[in-house]
Design a protein around this nucleic acid. Structure first.
Length: 441
DNA sequence: TCTGGGGTCCTAGGACCC
DNA sequence: TCTGGGGTCCTAGGACCC
């Protein structure tokens, strides 16, 4: 916790809806709901006019429609939101070099490095007021709510106190006076499940939480969560403002208006999603080792299956095949409402770079060598192979002198798995004859 | 026909290695 | 034949955030 209120949190008010109202004057002053407009959509952002009718984010669009039938329901223009967000983030970075975006519409700014003459209340307040004016000016009228405090936690709580279009400063030393009467759910990380656990233990407010020992909290919520809450309840928060964080995973998922039952269709959708994930990996110069699929069944139970490859990949064909293979383990006979594919375990180097050329996502033709018992060969996951006895397959995994191959058949795209010694003379790379499945960028 | 999409972090158990 | 502990990696699930 700092001696000065030098952490600023900025939150653009009803961001998506506000961008729509800015760009379409006919929507100004009217209820606007941005989110999924399909049968299973939810609200991403509701304008303040729509909130009057009890519409809020995360509510199903169906419910929102019944509460406010005359609202404009929009599916969202993410390019516009991204562009506007960039304008705001650039403006924040011009004000202070240390800016940590949390999402398109939210960021922390560290005023310690902003070049202000001092960090007294008057100074930082004037700075924040000026920043808000700049945001409004640069975005064509969007408003932001801003909080200032001695830590991220306090700044974030502060920005919520006067919404929309507000500015709240929590003077150093007054944090606990502010927090104590508040519900535990003001603490970031206390969602419905944690709040319910605490409630059952008779803990409702931050003041209640402050009275609980560290041991008791850890017993109740686990080591990391309990320990974190113990300190936050005392307004102890040393988390630094971190400008850039590396991505840890890339994923794509989709919820379908009617439950899927056709496995071939599911495989096709997974393949398409794998292509989107691979494309985004390549766009950012990333590759990853762990492929995960997510499957939400008709009854909303959510399953995940993952498989870690021996080396990172950014290729559609590999990700798609692993994903389809993972699906084979699952019983989807009751119907599937959501499918997703993700890649994690990211490395910022690309495997194909080893070959010295920008291979993008093309199949890499493999030199067919005559295997000898002493020769060590590299079997990359996803590589097409042919086995004299089993026919064509692809490398599922390898290591410790063993290569595992999955053989696709007409009946099953992720058919039988067999393991071979990696120098098995019956096993050899297969040179593809079909064109690469991804278009060049 | 309740319940999105893109993320992060944590936990717990098992495998495996030293 | 019995018995260790620690560390790391992997997998599955869950909570949470915007």
């Amino acid at each position: 916790m700092r001696a000065h209120a030098s952490v600023l949190h900025l939150d653009l008010d009803a961001f998506f809806a506000a961008v729509e109202q800015r760009d379409k004057p006919s929507l100004r002053g009217k209820p606007v709901v941005v989110g999924g407009v399909g049968g299973r959509g939810v609200v991403a952002t509701a304008s303040y006019e729509a909130r009057t009718y009890g519409v809020h984010s995360a509510m199903s669009t169906r419910e929102a429609r019944s509460r406010c039938p005359h609202a404009a329901f929009l599916s969202g223009r993410f390019h516009a939101y991204r562009d506007t967000s960039k304008v705001v983030m650039a403006l924040l970075r011009a004000a202070s070099p240390l800016v940590e975006p949390l999402s398109l519409d939210e960021a922390f700014v560290d005023l310690e490095h902003s070049g202000l003459p001092d960090l007294e209340i008057e100074t930082v307040t004037a700075f924040a007021a000026d920043l808000r004016a700049q945001v409004r000016e640069a975005t064509g009228g969007l408003t932001a709510s801003v909080g200032l405090g001695t830590s991220k936690f306090i700044a974030k709580v502060a920005s919520d106190l006067d919404k929309p279009d507000g500015l709240t400063v929590v003077p150093p030393g007054t944090e606990l006076t502010l927090l104590r009467p508040m519900r535990v759910s003001v603490i970031p990380g206390v969602g419905p499940a944690t709040a319910e656990r605490l409630r059952r233990a008779g803990i409702h407010t931050v003041e209640d939480l402050e009275a609980v020992s560290l041991d008791e909290l850890v017993r109740l919520l686990g080591k990391a969560h309990g320990g974190g809450l113990y300190h936050l309840a005392r307004a102890e928060d040393d988390r630094p403002v971190v400008p850039e964080r590396e991505a840890k995973s890339v994923s794509v998922e989709g919820t379908y208006d009617t439950d899927l039952t056709d496995r071939r269709l599911m495989e096709g959708l997974l393949t398409r999603q794998a292509g989107e994930v691979a494309g985004r990996l390549r766009k950012h110069g990333l590759s990853g080792r762990t492929v995960t699929i997510k499957v939400r069944l008709h009854d909303f139970t959510t399953l995940s299956r993952s498989s870690t490859l021996p080396s990172p990949t950014d290729r559609t064909s590999t990700i798609a095949r692993v994903a389809r293979g993972l699906l084979t383990d699952l019983d989807t006979s009751g119907g599937v409402r959501l499918l997703g594919v993700g890649v994690s375990g990211l490395a910022d180097w690309i495997q194909e770079d080893l070959f010295g050329e920008d291979q993008e996502d093309e199949e890499v033709p493999v030199e067919v060598e005559v295997p000898t018992s002493r020769q060590r060969r590299t079997w990359a996951p996803g590589m097409d192979v042919v086995h004299a006895g089993m026919g064509r397959g692809w490398v599922w995994g390898s290591g410790r002198g063993v290569v595992t191959v999955r053989f696709e058949t007409a009946e099953s795209p992720a058919g039988p798995v067999r393991s071979f010694a990696e120098d098995d003379p019956e096993l050899s790379p297969w040179v593809p004859q079909e064109p690469a499945e991804d278009p060049p960028p």
